[in-house]
Amino acid sequence: MRIAIAGAGSVGRSIAGELIENGHQVMLIDRDPIAIRTHLIENAEWVLADACEVSSLEEAGVHTCDVMIACTGDDKVNLVVALLAKTEFAVDRVVGRVNDPRNEWLFTDAWGVDVSVSTPRIMAALVEEAVSVGDLVRLFTLRQGQANLVEVTLPKTTPLAGVPVRDLRLPRDCALVTILRGGSVIVPAPDIPLEPGDELLFVASTEVEDLLREALR
């Protein structure tokens, strides 16, 4: 897969490194000459250009990319890059980085964003996940808020201890994806009993999160 990344800062480079390790072709675009550090990721294609200019994106060959990741430190720039990638170059998948949570509502398909990633929200969710036991924690938002990946760690005194997965009374638009137990990832088969300390991962619509929280209590 060919992937363009607008923003060659530490975040963009980290993403590029991971993607290259996974076998993808990556092009890093940045308008700041200081950010063009080809020696850091030698297998990436580096482009010194303004990703907010159509001519620059055209010259870089963005139309040949399967994915555009707009991950600069400026939300305005990320929105412009996303919109250009989607409307001018018909990039199949556009990912937008949200730096300020107050701007998260803008990162929708109206601006060409297929998936928005809010760095502050993810960090807050990871902190909550690390310290919260017994309460539902939203880890990630999917499909522009239509569904969320949520997690709950069962406390030592959970009334669900010994209850098989089949007997969980989950609300509609909600599915148990996996159970993390110790160092194991468990597929939630119907006859598997729950245990205290289990981390349960669900995909659920926003509307049923309160119902899911009550079901787990």
Rank of each mutant, 00 (worst) to 15 (best):
A85M: 13
A85N: 12
T87W: 08
A90F: 12
V91F: 03
V91S: 00
G96E: 02
R97I: 09
V98L: 09
D100L: 12
W105G: 01
T108M: 01
D109S: 14
D109P: 03
A110T: 11
V113Q: 11
D114G: 06
D114N: 05
V115M: 14
V115A: 03
V115K: 08
S116K: 14
S118V: 11
P120E: 01
R121T: 12
R121V: 05
I122G: 01
A124P: 00
A125V: 10
L126K: 02
L126F: 09
E129V: 02
V133W: 07
V133T: 13
V133R: 14
V133N: 02
G134K: 12
D135R: 15
L136Q: 10
R138D: 13
L139C: 07
T141V: 12
L142K: 11
Q146I: 03
A147V: 02
A147L: 06
L149S: 03
L149I: 15
V150M: 09
E151P: 00
E151Q: 15
T153A: 10
L154N: 01
T157E: 15
T157C: 03
P159R: 15
L160M: 07
G162P: 10
P164R: 13
V165C: 06
V165L: 00
V165P: 05
V165H: 02
D167Y: 04
D167Q: 14
L168D: 06
L168Q: 01
L168E: 00
R169Y: 00
L170W: 10
P171H: 01
D173T: 07
D173G: 00
A175H: 07
T178R: 03
R181A: 05
R181V: 04
V185M: 13
V185R: 13
V187Y: 12
A189R: 13
D191G: 05
I192E: 11
L194T: 03
G197C: 01
D198W: 10
D198R: 13
E199N: 08
L200G: 03
L201S: 00
L201E: 02
L201F: 11
A204Y: 12
A204R: 12
S205K: 15
T206F: 05
T206N: 04
E207Y: 03
E209S: 03
D210I: 06
D210R: 14
D210L: 09
L211S: 12
L211T: 02
